[in-house]
Design a protein around this nucleic acid. Structure first.
Lengths: 211, 211
DNA sequence: TAGATTGTTAATCGATTAACAATC
DNA sequence: TAGATTGTTAATCGATTAACAATC
């Protein structure tokens, strides 16, 4: 098992670049082209592939179709991934409507909220009471959940997910969730932090120029 | 100038942890406590502080109030940061309504869209035609922009921001933007990719267990 | 064949961790 | 003072980059 997160992220980027090349009619690709497309060095591309046992042809590069297929298998995109979202505030409902996931073979099976006013069983993506999360996730074999609740509700949302058999979480609440690492994969997206980071580097750049 | 992104992200996390400790009534903190709060080692905390010239007291640790102040200065939070958002689709409008930014001293000055139907000059956060971005950003000295447009519009949004004097961009469009690195800081948030990453590690964990 | 590209090994680089002298 | 904690230097670790033999 590869535990380097950056490496897995690069695989996703290669895959995206390959789809673009494919739609332009290309059939083969060299490590050189892929490297340029995602902004790394050619040896990084070959190293990444080597780590996952992906091989090409010396002199002939890689066949785009079969490369896409291999990457999709590695990334679990050979099967539809069903996810649930807990929290239907701003972030939650934006994710619910977001077209990007469907395009990537990710289907939002349902959303959950604690507020009875938000419940809507008839919607294309139903919004259900939080109490039903456990039964729903088990019945539909959901393994992936998104936490888009207010901060204070995030930890308990995680615990409900754990008890519902969910194995992976994308967390948008800006705090550190506590869970046994062997039991669940947590990936945090902290929007304030990302913006703060931009602000820092802009200021730092400014100071460098002034100096 | 510190160019290690991870280090800057940790500073933000320290700051958040410190606010929590402060609200619990604590006055001083040790590298040990901070390390535990954000999940790193104590020597990492001291190393990070040392990189930014932050010092404490041997035996006495760090004073929380003054530590928060120092971190806020470094992170540019001693002044209100005004940002603009281009694109008022799902992501854009979620960000517009998101409470997390205001809490962090980040104010959304305006949003911009190419669709005339979206324009709303009377709203608390006005939605303006894209053509007005340049004048607005210059008049209001906006340095930070968020790209939340469809993929195909992202590169041109970036170029308009560049010409408007914007120096830092948080990009939600899932593609690589091209720009001269010396002129602009770009931070990408790719939601599909983050979710794909969770899916990969869940599958990988599954395989490890099965084996 | 000659030339180009892979796959892998070795070298480099940078970030994290450990260790410990200084000192409150 | 004795004990605990910092600040910094050195050691380790892991990821990226370079180099090059194999070969299509």
């Amino acid at each position: 098992m590869i535990t380097n997160k950056n490496c897995v992220i690069r695989l996703s980027r290669y895959k995206n670049a390959l789809y673009r090349l494919q739609s332009l009619g290309f059939v083969r690709v060299f490590s050189d082209n892929l490297a340029d497309a995602i902004g790394v060095l050619p040896s990084q591309v070959r190293k990444d592939f080597s780590l996952f046992g992906i091989t090409g042809n010396k002199r002939g590069g890689y066949n785009i179709d079969s490369l896409i297929e291999k990457l999709n298998t590695i990334l679990g995109k050979d099967q539809l991934q069903k996810v649930v979202i807990v929290g239907t505030g701003n972030i939650g409902s934006a994710l619910m409507k977001y077209k990007g996931f469907e395009k990537e073979g990710i289907s939002i099976a349902a959303c959950f909220d604690i507020d009875p006013a938000k419940i809507n069983r008839q919607a294309k993506i139903p919004v259900l009471p939080l109490e039903e999360l456990k039964d729903f996730a088990r019945a539909n074999q959901i393994k992936i959940g998104v936490i888009a609740t207010p901060d204070v509700a995030a930890q308990s949302a995680l615990e409900m997910m754990l008890s519902a058999g969910i194995k992976g979480v994308l967390n948008f609440a800006p705090l550190r969730l506590r869970a046994p690492a062997e039991e669940i994969v947590i990936n945090n997206v902290n929007l304030e932090l990302e913006l703060e980071n931009v602000i820092y580097f802009v200021n730092a750049l400014d100071k460098t120029r002034a100096a």
